[in-house]
Design a protein around this nucleic acid. Structure first.
Length: 187
DNA sequence: GTTCTAGAAC
DNA sequence: GTTCTAGAAC
């Protein structure tokens, strides 16, 4: 067995072949349900092409990134047309293999347990796909300040809708269920 | 990424 | 006494 192939950080490669996890796939991408969803709907869109990290993406991959975003928007629309979604990447992911998060903005999930979880989806640590694409177009590479990003994970808890501060995850979670996070529509 | 758990916070 | 967070995991 190859060194590190069974390491936890390689788990997404296994999930790509797990028929219980995969919700959609084609020649270019595989979409899975996040194993520990942090909201009612939480998917990962991954290229079949082996791209270990976001920082290894170049201008040659822009079409692929656009396609990943498009497929993410499709799966969100198919899953739930009422809730708001975001499509983006963690600035410093823990899991290897490029993956874009598709996550509904309710954050209503028992798997969301820690300050790190919360801040990774609600601070600038979560970078919208369109901003990643824009940055690669401008600079040729996505290169976040790692130290600055890791500091964001320690930031005090704040509601992502009204910005109210909380001292514990429990009180924050009790608060956010009261917000309407459905898409606003013209009548 | 999660699990476990010691000790801080309440 | 219970809730909660934060750091080790060989």
């Amino acid at each position: 067995m190859a060194k590190n192939s069974g390491h936890w950080s390689q788990g997404l490669l296994a999930s790509m072949n797990d028929t219980n996890a995969v919700v959609d796939s084609d020649d270019t991408v595989v979409i899975i349900k996040d194993k520990y969803p942090k909201a009612l709907f939480h998917f990962l869109v991954m290229p079949r092409q082996k791209i270990p990290y976001l920082k290894s993406v170049t201008t040659n991959d822009l079409a692929l990134l656009e396609y990943i975003q498009k497929k993410g928007e499709e799966i969100a629309q198919r899953a739930n047309t009422e809730l708001k979604f975001r499509f983006g990447y963690h600035a410093v992911p823990s899991m290897s293999h490029l993956h874009m998060h598709v996550i509904s903005q309710d954050f209503n999930s028992p798997c969301l347990k820690t300050k790190k979880h919360w801040n990774s989806f609600t601070t600038e640590y979560f970078v919208d796909s369109k901003d990643v694409i824009q940055q690669i177009k401008l600079k040729g590479i996505f290169s976040p300040d790692i130290h600055e990003m890791n500091e964001l994970l320690k930031r005090d808890l704040r509601c992502h809708v009204c910005n109210k501060g909380f001292s514990t995850i429990s009180s924050l979670k009790a608060h956010i269920v009261m917000h309407d996070v459905t898409v606003l529509r013209d009548s």
